[in-house]
Amino acid sequence: MRAFNAVSSRFHAARPRHTTRLRSARARGRSASPPASDRPTIVGEKNERPPARSSQGDRFMSSDAIVLLKDDHKRIKKLFRDFQAAGENATKTKGDLVTKIIEALTVHTYLENEVMYPEVRTLLPDLEEDVLESYEEHHVADVLCTELFAMQPSDERFDAKTTVLIENVTHHIDEEENDWFPKVRAGLSRKTLQDIGAQMADMRDKAPRSPAQPSALKKTVDAIIR
């Protein structure tokens, strides 16, 4: 019996400390796990953290020009829906939404006019007519944005002008996504679209946010004389 007690004492003394902590935690009704550093690595065990990817790979995965432009389209159409759902007397809400719509469209059309359209026009000459039509549609949107920028939400024609802007831009977006983007993707390699997208991403921070900024005014004038 003494020999058994001596062996038992040595066994308990040699047990790892975290095992004692685990038993104490269970006694208090909490679940506990040993520290990650103490756990053995099990072959095939799922790692909770995703594997790291190179910064270059991340950039290329997220810089496809068409994907970036479609993301813009989603945000813009969401603002359109919010405006349409705001209600007849929601003057302040509509004014705030139109401010956001103008900013989003000013940035978006700037990136397309300065990067996407010139690149596609050069690389895919067969799509030149489509590009020229897109310039004209942007010009209409730019003019409407400039006029709305100078108006008050309480002005009689504010809602009507915003509705016309929404209709024109929605038509433009649908045409691009259903007709033009598929042609561009078929004609350009993934690498080329990634390079164009990277250019747009680099220019986004410098893009004008208001029709009154010089670069936005230049864009509107360029659309007339191209």
Rank of each mutant, 00 (worst) to 15 (best):
F181H: 10
I42G: 03
E167H: 11
A223L: 14
T162E: 05
A216I: 01
N168R: 11
N168T: 13
N113Y: 00
L148H: 06
R39K: 09
I66R: 02
T122G: 01
I196Y: 05
R75E: 13
T20S: 08
R17W: 07
P34G: 03
H18A: 09
I101K: 15
G29F: 14
P125K: 09
I224P: 00
M203Y: 06
P40T: 06
G44Q: 09
A186K: 13
E176T: 02
A223R: 04
P125W: 11
W180L: 14
P118Q: 08
K206S: 10
L22D: 01
N47R: 15
L165K: 11
D96S: 14
V120S: 02
I101C: 14
A201T: 07
L123M: 14
D155W: 08
P125E: 04
Q152N: 15
G197D: 05
S54M: 04
A25K: 03
S24Y: 01
H138V: 07
S63D: 07
E103P: 00
S189I: 06
L127T: 13
H108I: 05
S134W: 10
N5H: 03
I196H: 06
E114P: 02
A207H: 04
T163W: 00
K191P: 01
R157D: 13
V140R: 14
W180M: 15
A160I: 00
S37W: 05
T99R: 12
F181S: 03
I224L: 13
S154A: 13
T163L: 08
T146A: 12
S215C: 00
A186I: 00
A36K: 15
H73N: 13
D222C: 12
I102C: 03
Y135A: 03
E128R: 12
A150M: 05
H139C: 09
A27L: 08
M1D: 12
